[in-house]
Design a binder for these strands. Sequence first.
DNA 1: TTGTACGCGTTATCAA
DNA 2: TTGATAACGCGTACAA
Lengths: 324, 324
Amino acid sequence: MQAVGRMAGVSQVTVSRALSDPSKVSPETLARIHAAIAATGFVPNALAGALASHKSMLVSALVPSMTNIVYSSMLATFSEELRARGYQILLSETGFDAEQEAATVELHLSRRPDAILLTGVHHAPRTRKMLLGAGIPVVEVWDITETPIDLCVGFSHPASGHTMADFAVSAGYRTAVGFSAGDERARRRLAAFAERFSAQSGTPVPVKVTAVGGLAQGRAMLADVLDSGTFQGGLIACSSDVLAHGVLIEAAARNLTVPEDLAVIGFGDQDLAAAVEPPLTTIRVNREALGRSAASLVLARIRGEDPAHPVIGVGFSLIRRRSA
Amino acid sequence: MQAVGRMAGVSQVTVSRALSDPSKVSPETLARIHAAIAATGFVPNALAGALASHKSMLVSALVPSMTNIVYSSMLATFSEELRARGYQILLSETGFDAEQEAATVELHLSRRPDAILLTGVHHAPRTRKMLLGAGIPVVEVWDITETPIDLCVGFSHPASGHTMADFAVSAGYRTAVGFSAGDERARRRLAAFAERFSAQSGTPVPVKVTAVGGLAQGRAMLADVLDSGTFQGGLIACSSDVLAHGVLIEAAARNLTVPEDLAVIGFGDQDLAAAVEPPLTTIRVNREALGRSAASLVLARIRGEDPAHPVIGVGFSLIRRRSA
DNA sequence: TTGTACGCGTTATCAA
DNA sequence: TTGATAACGCGTACAA
């Protein structure tokens, strides 16, 4: 900035002002400064700026996995909203491990973000402590709690499982099995489904769990319950659309008709849900709205406001298509 | 650090040393310092550290889309390698637009990253200039060029199209159509396929293009060529596995048998390629190796080394399964 | 093994 | 409308 100022015939401070609040600089000097910037290729140092102003214009986001469309799609709108206000996103994966999350939080905090987004509501005690100590807005998403660290936007996973079960019962299904991915939230959804469905139908609901929830795992699980005789028709409730899609593929490969021979219900309403054959009955969560709400809550808190509702339930809805 | 030092009975510098190089501090004082850190909940300020040391321990990564598994999977290994060396990734989406990329590069440069990763080899002139001026390692990935800004790890998209065509001809297909996503690299792949296939088979290859390459678009494109009579059997070459998967779904919905009634070839060898029915013949790019090579090239350059081969071709291979 | 002094490149405060 | 000066919280000499 000093070099730019020298070239424009002004001091370093004036260059700083020209960049942060052009209205405080006369049009003529502003022009000279811009000319100097263009000539030198000067790029301001945001590190120094952040250090001096105590504003990093950085927002941290921690998600279990960035290759999972479920998280990346809500992040897309979250970061879009924040980028519009000049914030940049510092993104990290935490896996599904609380200790790894704690380590990542510490790393992020050292960059002095102006706010931080966490996935889920269950964290290591140390994580909570660090976050409280940091004194910045914290928003927990993709789950819901009455006792958030600060802010929370999400929905109840058990409630979504209950909704699936109620639908299944009312649609006339009397037997069911559950296929779940290994992460804690998926298991809570399926556990709630199994508990409610078996209570209403009187038949127990076995729940199979796989570490990762891919297409291949969906196929393999269906093959497994079919070959072992665990499943003789009825409904297959899956913790994700991808798993459900795998079930569809395996069923087709065995010349089984969906939903006649077996019915399938997914979770997430990803793009593929409507595009597969038959289209998937699934639970839709408005991920974009979730990301947007999280952003506006954070933005309000950064402005110093105290939101009337620090916990926002975005809800979900069952989309009935042809698979069940 | 001063406060921590006071509590531990040492100066600020000693605290700094305890954190950056514990071997330079006596075990006793180290213990006192760690106790003080634990007591105060002190988290070092990486902004100040970066400002003083001229090392931000930050590496920028710019990808067209983070919801696209193709990019996020190579990023996963890239960031894993760098995280192991203490670097953090500053990630941004650029869409498929050169101007947006330039603006994002400028934003990232203001954070003084120690290196930067760019997707593709075609950039705005201004981007090249800024990057050269920044004087940091730059690695361009997912495409290849003889004249990189600095480093390059990727493969030739036209060559992959030629490989598809050569396979198709040798497998006996005499007619083909191409389905391509709208991005520049996808189109180059399909254009190369069409050119080579028609040269060898003597029949022209129409190429359909869709802005986004989703499952629904794959279905719609197949429905379209079938209903309009543009396609009467032969091979469908797709710019991605997802598009190919859409073709598979639509074919099954119409009771068409693959590969007998129509054959399909994809690109990318994503997880789904082996899991669908029939499994997809596709082009595999080792995305993990790509991310890893990019990381080690960058790391070497950061260490001040001059890599013998600044341009690395990772190549690709055709995986023949049952769809073609 | 530890400490002193200084500088990194900005913003904030105050004065002109 | 502009400038001088002092932080911001660390690392890096250099000295002890």
